[in-house]
Design a protein around this nucleic acid. Sequence first.
DNA 1: TTTTAAATTTGCAATGATTTCAAAAATAAA
DNA 2: TTTATTTTTGAAATCATTGCAAATTTAAAA
Lengths: 139, 139
Amino acid sequence: MSRVELKKELIRAGIRPSVQRLAIYEYVKMTKHHPTAECVYESLRDKLGSLSLTTVYNTLKLFVDAGLVIMLNIDNTFHCFDGYTHPHAHFRCNTCGKIYDFPMKRDYHALVEDAEGFDVTEAQLYLKGICKVCKSIKN
Amino acid sequence: MSRVELKKELIRAGIRPSVQRLAIYEYVKMTKHHPTAECVYESLRDKLGSLSLTTVYNTLKLFVDAGLVIMLNIDNTFHCFDGYTHPHAHFRCNTCGKIYDFPMKRDYHALVEDAEGFDVTEAQLYLKGICKVCKSIKN
DNA sequence: TTTTAAATTTGCAATGATTTCAAAAATAAA
DNA sequence: TTTATTTTTGAAATCATTGCAAATTTAAAA
């Protein structure tokens, strides 16, 4: 996705594309490694000349509220962010800490009973264990 | 479940049932409202005469590591605990904050593709939205 | 029962991610 | 250009959680 397209997405969502916002949006959308706010900050500080960690937090919250980015809470010590908003599951390796995206066969509705009367607007399937790579290293 | 049975469960898990541990275990197993560590502490402090918040944290970690209790991370500002360890989904109401247990039809495996080579030892399905009660109040 | 060793509890301080806040800077509107 | 609005910034505050070392309790040994 080009920078121009990303800009249009922000505008469409009613978010004015400032230099910082566009840079943060581009970073979160393009990377695949589920960065933390701190990570976004470290990665962009030099490129932008200057950047505040507060701006990163504020901006990410803005994106999450607008539905442009998903906030993951799979690691209970910090949040991380995912620009890929299509429904999918997340796997966190207990050994290396890496987070993997897993496609989901069906909608979460297939799993849940007795949800009548409840409005489900968000669903997260978090899996934990040992990843392929760490498993092969061990053996 | 009786206090004697709970005591036996702790011993079976290799955990010595001190006064504090048994009280905390009983509380978490018996309550249905997914308490935080702070909540456990507030609820038991008077009954036990004295209690340290650190003890509550240490003890809950002990239970979680032993698989006796599940730690939920559905609300991203704090953890809460569930003594019901059978696989089930959790729904958090964005309005009232209450957490509901939802039975799951199938194993999470039914949902996930491409998990070959990965060892999944833990699975959490977190749902968010508006609960039945809050919805009926609104209308 | 006494002595000794090990396990457990305790409270306070430290940690670290996140938020608050008010001022400064940038941008848009008049 | 002037004025109003939005955005960014950095330092301080917050708050759940953890580290740590001393005090207490419990179990084991003598």
